[in-house]
Amino acid sequence: TTYKLILNGKTLKGETTTEAVDAETAERVFKEYAKKNGVDGEWTYDDATKTFTSTE
């Protein structure tokens, strides 16, 4: 399943996707990605669109 991440950081904005077996796995991948890029925001998830959003 393809999951999408929308980053709305103070210094980094953008989108990326990952293939994962479930939302929990995708969330771990995306949170590590955000951390590596210095984004520490509030997380939301929309199951209908398989989209995570992190907003600082």
Results as ranks from 00 to 15, higher is better:
E19D: 10
A26K: 00
T16H: 14
N8Q: 10
E15P: 03
F30V: 00
K50S: 05
Y33M: 04
G41L: 08
A48M: 11
A20Q: 07
E27P: 00
S54F: 15
K13F: 11
V39H: 10
T49M: 05
L7E: 01
T44M: 09
Y33N: 01
Y45I: 00
D47T: 08
T51C: 04
D46T: 04
D22R: 03
F30E: 00
E27I: 08
E24A: 13
A26Y: 00
T49D: 04
V21A: 14
F52W: 06
V21D: 12
F52T: 00
D46S: 06
T2L: 14
D40P: 05
A26G: 01
N37I: 14
T25E: 14
L12C: 15
K10N: 11
F30M: 02
T1P: 09
K35F: 11
D47I: 10
N37Q: 14
A26N: 00
G41M: 05
K10Y: 09
T11D: 11
V29H: 11
G14M: 15
L12E: 06
D47R: 08
K13M: 10
Y3H: 03
N37C: 15
A20G: 03
G9K: 03
R28E: 07
V39Q: 04
V21F: 13
V21N: 12
T2K: 12
S54A: 15
A23G: 04
T55P: 02
K13Y: 12
W43K: 00
D46Y: 03
S54R: 03
Y45E: 01
E42G: 05
T55H: 07
T44G: 06
E27C: 15
T1K: 10
A48E: 12
K36S: 11
L12Y: 15
A34E: 04
Y3V: 03
T2Y: 09
T51I: 06
E56S: 06
T11A: 11
T18S: 04
F30T: 00
T44R: 09
A23M: 13
F52C: 00
L12D: 05
W43L: 08
T44N: 08
I6S: 03
T53Q: 07
T55I: 09
T16A: 12
E32M: 07
Y45A: 00
E24S: 11
V21R: 11
T1G: 09
Y3D: 04
A34S: 06
L5D: 03
E24N: 09
T51N: 01
L12Q: 09
L7M: 10
T55C: 07
T53S: 07
T44P: 00
T53P: 00
T16S: 09
E32V: 07
F52I: 01
A34D: 01
D47Q: 10
K4P: 04
I6C: 07
T51R: 02
T2F: 09
Y33T: 02
L5Q: 01
E42L: 13
I6D: 02
T25K: 05
E56C: 07
R28Y: 07
K4I: 13
W43V: 03
Y3G: 03
G38H: 08
T1W: 11
Y45D: 00
L7W: 10
K4H: 13
F30L: 06
T49E: 05
K36T: 10
K36W: 08
A23D: 05
V29Y: 15
R28P: 02
T18H: 07
S54N: 12
S54I: 15
K35S: 10
K13C: 14
T51M: 03
G9A: 06
L5Y: 04
K13L: 08
T16Q: 08
K36C: 12
S54M: 15
V21K: 13
G14V: 15
E32N: 07
D47H: 11
A34Y: 02
N8A: 08
Y3I: 04
Y45G: 00
D22V: 02
T1D: 12
K13R: 11
D22A: 03
K35R: 12
K36F: 10
V39D: 03
A23S: 10
Y3E: 03
Y33W: 13
L5E: 03
A20E: 04
L12W: 15
G14Y: 15
F52A: 00
T17A: 07
D40E: 13
K13P: 04
L5C: 12
T11H: 14
T25C: 08
E56L: 07
L7T: 04
K13V: 11
L12T: 12
E27H: 12
A23W: 15
E15D: 05
K31H: 08
T51F: 01
G41A: 06
Y33I: 07
T2Q: 11
A48S: 12
K10M: 13
A20C: 09
R28D: 04
Y45R: 00
E56A: 06
K10V: 13
A34V: 06
G9M: 07
L12P: 04
N37Y: 15
T2P: 04
T49H: 05
T18Q: 06
E24Q: 12
K36N: 12
V29T: 09
L5M: 04
L5A: 03
K31P: 01
A23P: 12
T11E: 11
Y45C: 00
T17H: 09
E32T: 06
V29P: 00
T17F: 14
A48P: 06
G14K: 14
T49V: 05
L5P: 03
A23V: 13
E24K: 13
K13G: 05
V39P: 02
G38M: 06
N8K: 12
F30D: 01
A48F: 10
D47G: 08
E27T: 03
K35Y: 10
T17W: 14
D22Q: 02
E32Y: 05
K36R: 12
K31T: 05
K35M: 12
A26P: 00
D22C: 05
V29F: 15
T17S: 10
E15N: 07
D47C: 07
L12I: 14
A48N: 12
T44S: 13
W43D: 00
D40N: 14
T49R: 06
K50E: 02
T25V: 08
E56Y: 08
G38T: 02
N37K: 13
A34N: 02
G41H: 04
T1C: 13
E24I: 12
Y33D: 01
T17L: 09
Y3R: 03
D40I: 13
I6T: 03
D22K: 03
A26W: 01
F30A: 02
E19C: 15
N37W: 15
G41W: 15
E15K: 07
K10G: 07
G41K: 02
E15L: 09
K4W: 11
V39I: 13
T2W: 13
K10F: 13
K35I: 12
T1H: 13
T25G: 07
D47E: 14
F52S: 01
R28I: 10
T18C: 15
E19Y: 15
N8V: 13
G38V: 03
V21C: 13
A20M: 02
D46C: 09
K36D: 10
E42K: 11
I6F: 06
L7I: 13
T53G: 02
A20D: 02
G38A: 06
T17Q: 10
K35Q: 11
E15R: 07
Y3S: 03
E56N: 05
A34R: 02
A23K: 15
N37L: 15
A34I: 06
E42S: 11
W43E: 01
E15F: 14
L7H: 03
E42R: 09
Y3P: 04
T53F: 10
K35T: 09
K4Y: 15
D46I: 04
D22I: 02
T55Q: 07
T17V: 09
L12K: 10
G41D: 04
V39G: 03
K13H: 12
L5H: 02
V39K: 02
K31D: 02
K50A: 04
D40T: 11
E32H: 06
T53H: 07
T55F: 08
T1A: 10
T25M: 11
V29A: 09
T44W: 07
Y3A: 02
F52Y: 05
K13S: 10
K50L: 08
K4V: 09
T11L: 12
S54D: 04
T53Y: 14
D47S: 13
T11P: 04
